[in-house]
């Protein structure tokens, strides 16, 4: 659950060795025309808040993050994917209301349906200045047909294989990738196995000690419908 007060508070924090998120936003939005960064707070233990970069500005933003001496993020250590299914999000909105007793704040919880999307997450470090990570994300428009994001391989060469892996397992298509092929699964494979709605092939014929989900799947192969 996202607390708007907490969010702005978290935006004042800074990734290790770097300016605060507010400052980073200011610098980037100043230098890239039309860029609007979305701040994604992470109040949980890892404490790695991040920015969501719109796809069309991703390449330019990444170049600044690498070349600007204030960041000098020359090393992309990790690229990964996240699959977000359709979900209902609860948002708390604060209203200020003036009544006879004075001013008071009303919390209103709004539920809205958020359509699913895929996400590519980049962890950036600076080898030269020894700092980081700064986490940036790119999101696709949906999970089905508009699954394109910009490839950051032209900026960080180390992203090449990892973007291929994200493509292979999540089905995110990276525009501008030099060699976007499957890397772990075979070329003839059609599905994306790390997606949350992936259905694995039913090879549960022989399960001597099945438990949990596997037991339910194995039961379909038992003679007499699973029970005597």
């Amino acid at each position: 659950m996202r607390d708007p007060e907490k969010s702005s508070e978290l935006e004042e924090t800074a990734p290790p060795g770097l300016p605060s998120f507010q400052e980073i936003r200011r610098i980037l939005e100043e230098r890239v025309e039309g860029l609007r960064l979305e701040f994604i707070p992470n109040p949980a233990a890892p404490d790695q808040s991040s920015f969501c970069v719109p796809t069309e500005f991703a390449l330019e933003t990444a170049r600044i993050l690498r070349d600007d001496p204030r960041f000098a993020l020359d090393f992309c250590s990790n690229v990964t994917g996240v699959d977000w299914l359709d979900q209902t999000v609860e948002e708390t909105i604060l209203h200020r209301e003036t009544t006879d007793e004075g001013e008071r704040t009303i919390k209103e919880i709004v539920r809205r349906r958020r359509p699913g999307f895929l996400e590519a997450v980049y962890h950036l470090y600076s080898m030269r200045a020894r700092r980081g990570p700064l986490v940036i994300r790119q999101r696709t428009a949906n999970r089905i047909d508009r699954v394109r994001v910009a490839s950051l391989t032209p900026i960080w060469r180390s992203a090449e294989f990892q973007e291929r892996e994200v493509y292979d397992l999540f089905g995110v298509r990276f525009e501008g990738h030099p060699d976007l092929r499957r890397i772990l699964m075979w070329d003839e494979f059609k599905d994306y196995p790390m997606r949350k709605d992936y259905v694995e092939p039913d090879d549960y014929e022989y399960e001597p000690t099945p438990q949990g989900e596997a037991a339910a799947k194995a039961r379909r192969h038992y003679p007499y419908g699973g029970a005597r």
Binding site: E205, E207, P208, A218, Y222, G226, A227, R228
Partner: peptide
């Protein structure tokens, strides 16, 4: 195919539920 049915004969399990 996912298995060679001529070669692989798993023991069928008959279990309660």
């Amino acid at each position: 195919p996912p298995k060679n049915t001529e070669l692989w004969h798993p023991k069928p399990f008959v279990r309660d539920a």
